[in-house]
């Protein structure tokens, strides 16, 4: 995968986002210039955004640049990124149900993903971090989810 391909995919994504925004904006009342409705600004922004994102997309498609390979992204890096996202998704799915212990699981899995070897140190690290944060946030009266258990 080259940088140019990723850039083009992102530009298509931004164009589709603007187009969808425009389509949904048309469902709102536009009003008239003397009495603009709730759709007045969204439709205007939608038109501008769609045109501009299309322009950026075409301009980048036409530009002849040397295709850069993703040299700065090693296999390990991609693995770490995927690991981070998965750990966070897992945390979000169960944080409300399980509560604070989920923070321990998040930090533990992130530590492992980040390259911590063995089991003892990541468990200790996650345990100490969770305890410190729990007491700090309780002291500062910042709420935690209590969990269902």
């Amino acid at each position: 995968m080259s940088k140019k391909l990723i850039t083009n995919i992102s530009n298509v994504g931004l164009f589709l986002f603007c187009l969808l925004y425009l389509i949904f904006s048309f469902k709102m009342s536009f009003g008239r210039p003397g009495m603009p409705g709730p759709g007045f600004v969204p439709v205007t922004l939608g038109v501008l955004g769609t045109l501009l994102s299309l322009g950026v997309l075409i301009k980048e498609l036409m530009s002849i640049k040397i295709v850069e390979k993703l040299e700065d992204f090693t296999k390990q890096g991609v693995f770490r990124f995927a690991g981070y996202v998965l750990s966070i998704v897992l945390f979000l799915l169960f944080y409300k149900t399980i509560g604070v212990p989920m923070l321990f699981i998040l930090v533990f899995s992130l530590a492992k993903t980040s390259g911590y070897r063995g089991w003892v140190y990541p468990i200790l690290f996650a345990g100490i971090f969770t305890t410190v944060v729990y007491f700090l946030f309780t002291f500062l009266q910042v709420p935690f989810p209590s969990g269902d258990f």
Partner: peptide, 15 residues
Amino acid sequence: VKILMPIITGIMFIG
């Protein structure tokens, strides 16, 4: 980084 990033991520999410 293996210490710093989990700490920052954890604080960000609970915050």
